[in-house]
Design a protein around this nucleic acid. Structure first.
Length: 597
RNA sequence: GGGGCGGUAGCUCAAUUGGUUAGAGUACCGGCUUGUCACGCCGGUGGUUGCGGGUUCGAUUCCCGUCCGCCUCGCCA
């Protein structure tokens, strides 16, 4: 077997005259006739031209080369020389070529379903690319992504290792918990009728490691949640999971912010500057979302008080609404110069757009020289002076207004803001805007279940000054949670945890877990909290999303070597699939499928 | 579970209002070609139009169902 001496990206003029061996795949072949064949040989480091010339080498070598086709896997041995013909400025190795004297074909590529061509990749059905993932991954872009991902995990271990963190593994076969996402479940053969659950995160284990005196824990771990995927979300994903003892939230944000800084510096050479901080309340009011994209303006403004006197039914109806302790609102976005930039077709589209967020539509008006113009102008006219002052209106602005329940209007405008920002090209994609979102509510009111649900998870501690609200006013109780957001995307989230059993019991009670249920499901945690638990807190970074940002893709499947489709299928190995009857019997079970209606 | 878009040759796409033998580029096969570089020229193979049903003299085209993929709402402590 020919052994490689150089990679395909290496050869340059200084190697001229050397005998070298390259291994790789045939990227292109250019057969010039019986006596002359060119190949571009590709490996993960690059491309190098190989030439077979009858004037220099035996006929059998040249004829073997003529039989090569795209993606054949081969080795060639020969002399590196400056090119006899013109250099190719498009190749890093374009000044040189290998004059081949020997060739070894490791494996021919038969009946290729797809080609790993960068210029084709965007066009080929992702379905096909996923089925033949091993070919698609040959693309330089995919190789670059896989290696960037490795750089990040290596950097993670180096950074946290240097900061006193210990990497510790936690189990995959654990038990189902009542809160949170749907669990993936595994039958327990030795306990017929009993089930393991795969972890949604190592949350409880990392807390218990703190009780166990580990002080600083790190794990790059797989998490599994049986919920529907999205463009930036898979059922199976990877977290950089961390926990620290004897810290408050400032300590955690400090260490983790520095980690983010190190990552952007190391991978992109970018200085992220100081990380801003914003309360959840502020984020929701001003940006309509708990992960604001600060790369552009178009902030949301509340004009409920201004238009309260309006007799416009839409406003009145909204203001009269009430849900989860919040009054209905009238909120708006001022689009500077919108009168010119936003067409009627676009604003009509916005009404359709917000309907998916369960609100009726967008009320539109423009600021003219002599008053509001078009749309809901007449309903706003009485409040023109006040609105002009409040919103700093200028002639030519457009107002986009949504009136509804607080949460509905907030979400609709938050999404609309992003859409308008994109439509008008206001987003500078060379910028990185980091911020910490803090002071999340502890609980959300579940209107259907008529109970409080933990906003983050039920082990999140209230902020130190908020403990008394647990009993008096849970809805106003603010947690010691924090999310790290970049460009409108949550890349990490965590909190200071509860380290006292009495507080943990209170929270369980608030979210409707009885003492008995809590003991059954989380008894091990409550026990641990009885036996000398240190104050502790942590965070988890979404590794997949982190890498997505660093390589500039909006498709999570691009950053996972073997990803799943929207229906949770792996098209390459064709999973999920049936199992032998015996495997089911071994688990002490029998299968009956419930007919779909 | 809901909404939207898509599925025609290995791949990327076309096919008029429902009308002849479903075409093109590329890949692949054969031939030619000694300085190409997404080489070029000539020829060729290749089709269950996702699948099932219906309407019709006739369906890639219209209708119903279904499967798969993507985006999205719900969901994702």
């Amino acid at each position: 077997m020919l052994k490689r001496t150089h990679t395909c990206g290496q050869p340059c003029a200084e190697h001229a005259g050397q005998t070298i061996t390259l291994c790789g795949w045939v990227n292109t072949y250019r057969d010039q006739g019986k006596g002359l064949v060119f190949l571009d040989l590709r490996d993960r480091e690059g491309l190098c031209q190989v030439v077979f010339d009858l004037e220099d080498v035996p006929a059998d070598v040249v004829s073997a080369a003529r039989g090569l086709r795209r993606e054949d896997c081969i080795a060639v041995r020969g002399t590196l020389r400056k090119r006899a013909g013109d250099a190719n400025p498009r190749l890093a190795t374009g000044a040189v070529e290998v004059l081949a004297t020997e060739i070894e074909v490791f494996n021919k590529a038969q009946d290729l379903p797809i080609l790993p061509d960068e210029h084709e990749a965007g066009k080929i059905n992702e379905e096909t690319r996923l089925k033949y993932r091993y070919i698609d991954l040959r693309r330089p872009r995919m190789q670059q992504i896989l290696r960037t991902r490795y750089k990040v995990t290596k950097l993670t271990r180096d950074y946290f290792g240097a900061n006193g963190f210990t990497e510790i593994e936690t189990p995959l076969l654990i038990k189902s918990t009542p809160e949170g996402a749907r669990d993936f479940i595994v039958p327990a053969r030795l306990h017929p009728g009993q089930w393991y659950a795969l972890p949604q995160s190592p949350q409880l284990f990392k807390q218990i490691l703190m009780v166990a005196g580990c002080e600083r824990y790190l794990q790059i771990c797989r998490c599994l949640r049986d919920e529907d995927p999205r463009a930036d979300r898979q059922a199976e994903f990877t977290q950089i999971d961390l926990e620290m003892s004897f810290v408050d939230r400032e300590d955690v944000m400090q260490v983790m912010g520095e980690f983010a800084r190190a990552v952007w510096k190391e991978i992109l050479g970018y200085d992220i500057g100081t990380i801003e901080r914003m309360t959840w309340q502020d984020a929701m009011e001003r940006f309509g979302i708990d992960r604001p994209d600060l790369r552009f303006g178009l902030e949301i403004r509340d004009i409920s008080d201004v238009v309260r006197a309006s007799d416009f039914q839409v406003f009145q109806g909204a203001l009269a609404k009430k849900r989860a302790g919040r009054d209905g609102v009238v909120k708006c976005i001022r689009v500077p110069g919108g009168a010119e930039k936003l067409t009627r077709k676009m604003t009509d589209g916005y009404t359709e757009f917000v309907k998916q967020f369960k609100t009726g539509g967008v009320a539109v008006t423009k600021v003219g020289a002599n008053g509001f113009d078009t749309g809901v102008a007449k309903h706003l006219e009485p409040f023109r002076a006040e609105l002009t002052k409040r919103l700093s209106l200028e002639v030519g602005d457009t107002l986009l207004i949504v009136a509804d329940h607080w949460d509905t209007a907030t979400k609709a405008l938050g999404e609309l803001r992003l859409k308008v920002g994109r439509d008008l090209g206001l987003i500078d994609d060379t910028k990185w805007k980091f911020l910490w979102v803090v002071d999340f509510p502890m609980f959300d009111w579940d209107d259907e279940g008529k109970r409080w649900v933990a906003m983050h998870h039920p082990f999140t501690s209230p902020n130190p000054d908020q403990f008394h609200l647990l009993e008096s006013d849970p809805g106003r109780c603010v947690s010691a949670g924090y999310d790290l957001v970049v460009n409108g995307s949550e890349i990490a989230g965590g909190s200071i945890r509860i380290h006292r059993m009495d507080v943990q019991e209170k929270v369980f009670k608030l979210i409707g877990l009885t003492q008995a249920e809590a003991e059954l499901k989380f008894g091990f945690l409550l026990n641990a909290l009885r036996h000398g638990a240190p104050p502790h807190g942590g965070i988890a970074f979404g590794l997949d999303r982190l890498v997505m940002h660093l390589v500039g893709t909006d498709n999570i499947r691009d950053v996972i070597a073997f990803p799943k489709t929207q229906s949770g299928a792996d098209l390459m190995i064709d999973a999920p699939g049936p199992i032998d009857e015996q495997q089911i019997t071994d688990c002490g079970m029998k299968m009956t499928l419930i007919e779909k209606k």
